[in-house]
Design a protein around this nucleic acid. Sequence first.
DNA 1: GATAATTAATTCGACTTCTAAATATAGTTT
DNA 2: AAACTATATTTAGAAGTCGAATTAATTATC
Lengths: 159, 159
Amino acid sequence: MKDYDELLISLRRITRAIDLYSKRLQKETNLTISQLLVMDAIVKIDKPTPSAIAKSILLSQATVTNLIDRLVKNGLVERKRLGTDKRTINIVLTQQGEQKYQDAPELLQSEFLRKYRELENWEQHLLVSAISRVATMMDAEEIDASPILTLGEIGIRDQ
Amino acid sequence: MKDYDELLISLRRITRAIDLYSKRLQKETNLTISQLLVMDAIVKIDKPTPSAIAKSILLSQATVTNLIDRLVKNGLVERKRLGTDKRTINIVLTQQGEQKYQDAPELLQSEFLRKYRELENWEQHLLVSAISRVATMMDAEEIDASPILTLGEIGIRDQ
DNA sequence: GATAATTAATTCGACTTCTAAATATAGTTT
DNA sequence: AAACTATATTTAGAAGTCGAATTAATTATC
């Protein structure tokens, strides 16, 4: 028995629940959470490039390329060279992608959201700040390697 | 902006930090967190079978089979038929596996553990109970499909 | 005792995720 | 202008993860 066993098991439960939800979504809508996150970023970022998307949703560039490949294959997004710098690529939603995005499910389990929204405000804050505290304690070591940017820095339009 | 954006990003930070730590461990020790969890379960469970291991560390049986394959390939565990029921297989550590298990690193980042252990007791409890609450809110839907067992039910020896 | 239902484990196929290496373009230096 | 250096993206390779299908063995039912 370690002093962090309970923490570890709770974290496993959370990541597993998220993973299972992602797989359920894929069966139901043909979209995983990660793919949805990418589409979400495309909508929210001004002139979205793979690297900007990667930063905004905390994935490596290689992973984003992979996810975009899949979205392209399903006809939901397209790669376009729009800027003058020919190294960069902009990702845009197709008509079909727009539609799918409109109808997209939430990024967290509806049951979870229902419960979460039932909580008092202070309770929500307590949960969020605890989780965020753990996140900070946990990813501190990575921060040098790949700095967490603020939303502003990557051109998120707040709305 | 969704009302759960901050939560989502914190959860991503946590899962990412864990994943990166796992990959770092693999480079340094040739063992991932998942593989370590399996070895841990083997030590703690009486007559460990793939299914018992899967239940105890919250992974599907298929995943555990996969992890065991890898451990076998690296000479750390062996599959043995010990019981009378010829369907079941018991997993045992090899000599080398024992050794590796002794020297194994912690399952969470040492930096995280250092910070965690510096906290006051009440603060630790606050974090753990918040995380565990989120876990409960999140995996409630899965519980029917695959019930979370107590440690006792799968034969964990406490200590 | 033969057939059906259940259980344990594995295999298969699909997806996510990473790092490191490869490509291509842009910017800087001399 | 040629040769570095830096940046953006993709490719390659390796693990983890699951559900569904498969195989083998056990238990239950008639």
